[in-house]
Structure formats: structure tokens, C-alpha cells
């Protein structure tokens, strides 16, 4: 059985800053990293590999330099790494992205049956959390989002039980394979690569698939296949630290002011 993880290379958004003068994004020198949620997806796939000996393939759609991201996955122990890279894939929204990714998974499935696809809950750049459901729906896999624990996995029966983390509650769901999971950070603690694996991965090759391999209709991928487009980008109003009321002279008054502020800004619900 093959386990597929989808990982995306993203700019390290914690390092993104807004230029206070021009009010634009300062991206200079900001490194690309593996989407943090995807490191947890990868870890879960590798745990399945450790436990059951499944093969793990990592796929990523992105520019040629996203190869670095896949090399990291190789250093951690994935068996196969595929970069989906083509001019024609560029500018995709989630609909077009999930079309390319699911086609790639389908291609892999033709070589070896795919049992589980694992995605991060969302990325830290696009932030949409839509690609996972998109892939699952296209492939007709059962979609289990926001997984924070794999309760039971029985590869012989082909069933999996997971716990999902929702607002104020947790839900335990059972489903037959194939499934697509999107995972949250609480699921596991990603492993650290050993040096021999790092060195090995420097030699390992990342396969690159372009649309030559996937043969998707140009109108369904990339910019053309994307119903949504970004018409404008601007900087948000930044909240500056604010001291509320006079907590020394009138603590109760300051407390009231604070609560009312939270409620009026809809940060708190009473």
C-alpha cells in the first residue's frame, strides 16, 4: 500500500513584515520552508511506514526550487518524492491545485494502490484549508479533516478510526480506506532527520512531473483553471498594544472597559 503526503513549500510568513512607510510586504531575504502543518502530515505517514512497512510518496506542486522541500522529506525517510512543476500549473487557486494533485495521486495509484493521502490542515500562506477536501472529493476518497489523533488503524480490514478536533468538541469517526486526512499540529511531534539520512537525501533524486506526464486540459489547470483570482492586496490595520483604563485607580472600571471592548469587537461572545 502506498501512503501519499502532500507538502507545500511556503514563505516563512512569521518573518514577513509590513514596511511601515510604504505599507507593503517586506519579503527580502525571507526563506522558504515546508508548510508547518505538512511536517505533521509527513510524520504521520512515516509512522505508518514504520509500523506497517508501507511505502510513502511525497508530492508537491510548485516552482522548481520547491525541490528543496522534497529533499527534506527524503531526508526524513519518504521513499519517493515527486515535484509537480510546470509553467502551466502556475497561478492556480485551490480548485486548480487540487486537480493537479489528484491527477498525480491517481497516476501513483495506477502503479501501487494508494490507501491514505495525508495533507496539512492548511498552509500558512494561502491559508485556505481547501486543497485537502478538493483532492478527496475528486478522487472519491473519504475525507477526514482536522485529525488530531489516529485512534485505530487496521490495514487488513482496511479501516481507520480517527479523532477530529472541532470547535469546542472532538469527534471520533471511522471510515474505510482509501481516505484523505488533513491533520492539525497536536497530532504528533515531527521527527528530526539523522545525518546519514540527510546525506543520503542529498544524492536522492526528486522526480519532476510536468503536464507532459499528467496530460491535463490546459483550461482546467493553473491560472486558466482557477475560478478565483486575487484582485487586490493590502495591509491590514495593525493593532498596536493598548493599555485599557486606569487599572491602578479604578481596577473594576478598567476590567469592565476591557470586557466591553472584547465584546464590542466580537472577540468574545457572551
Amino acid at each position: 500500500m502506498l501512503v501519499v503526503v502532500c507538502i507545500k513549500q511556503v514563505p516563512d510568513t512569521t518573518q514577513v513584515q509590513i514596511d511601515p512607510v510604504t505599507n507593503t510586504l517586506v519579503r527580502e531575504g525571507i526563506p522558504f520552508i515546508v508548510n508547518p502543518y505538512d511536517t505533521h502530515a509527513l510524520e504521520e505517514a512515516l509512522r505508518l511506514k514504520d509500523r506497517f512497512g508501507f511505502r510513502v510518496a511525497a508530492i508537491s506542486m510548485g516552482p522548481p526550487n520547491a525541490e528543496a522541500t522534497l529533499k527534506k522529506a527524503l531526508a526524513l525517510g519518504v521513499d519517493e518524492a515527486i515535484l509537480l512543476s510546470d509553467r502551466a500549473f502556475g497561478g492556480a487557486d485551490t480548485l486548480a491545485t487540487s486537480r493537479v494533485l489528484s491527477e498525480a495521486i491517481d497516476r501513483l495509484n495506477r502503479q501501487e494502490q494508494v490507501g491514505i493521502v495525508i495533507c496539512g490542515k492548511q498552509t500558512i500562506d494561502g491559508d485556505t484549508a481547501q486543497v485537502g477536501p478538493g483532492i478527496a472529493t475528486r478522487l472519491g476518497y473519504t475525507q477526514l479533516t482536522l485529525v488530531d489523533r489516529v485512534e485505530k488503524f487496521d490495514p487488513f480490514q482496511g479501516r481507520i478510526t480517527v479523532r477530529r478536533k472541532l470547535e469546542g468538541r472532538h469527534e471520533t469517526v471511522e471510515a474505510p480506506l482509501p481516505v484523505l486526512l488533513t491533520v492539525v499540529r497536536e497530532l504528533n511531534r515531527p521527527r528530526y532527520p539523522t545525518v546519514p539520512m540527510r546525506l543520503e537525501s542529498e544524492q536522492a533524486t526528486v522526480q519532476v512531473w510536468s503536464n507532459q506526464e499528467l496530460q491535463l486540459d490546459q483550461n482546467g489547470i493553473g491560472l486558466k483553471g482557477s475560478p478565483t483570482w486575487v484582485s487586490r492586496i493590502f495591509s491590514p490595520q495593525r493593532e498596536k498594544g493598548e493599555i485599557v483604563g486606569d487599572g491602578v485607580a479604578d481596577p473594576a472600571g478598567a476590567a469592565h472597559l476591557l470586557v466591553d471592548k472584547l465584546v464590542s469587537r466580537d472577540l468574545l461572545v457572551v
Partner: peptide
């Protein structure tokens, strides 16, 4: 909507 970890706001259209 906010993107890039809340560092930018984007206006998205789906006009077709």
C-alpha cells in the same frame, strides 16, 4: 480575507 498568516489582506473575485 487575511492571508500570509494575517500579514496581508486580499480581495478575491470569482466573477466568471
Amino acid at each position: 480575507r487575511p492571508a500570509f498568516g494575517g500579514n496581508i489582506m486580499a480581495t478575491i473575485m470569482c466573477d466568471k
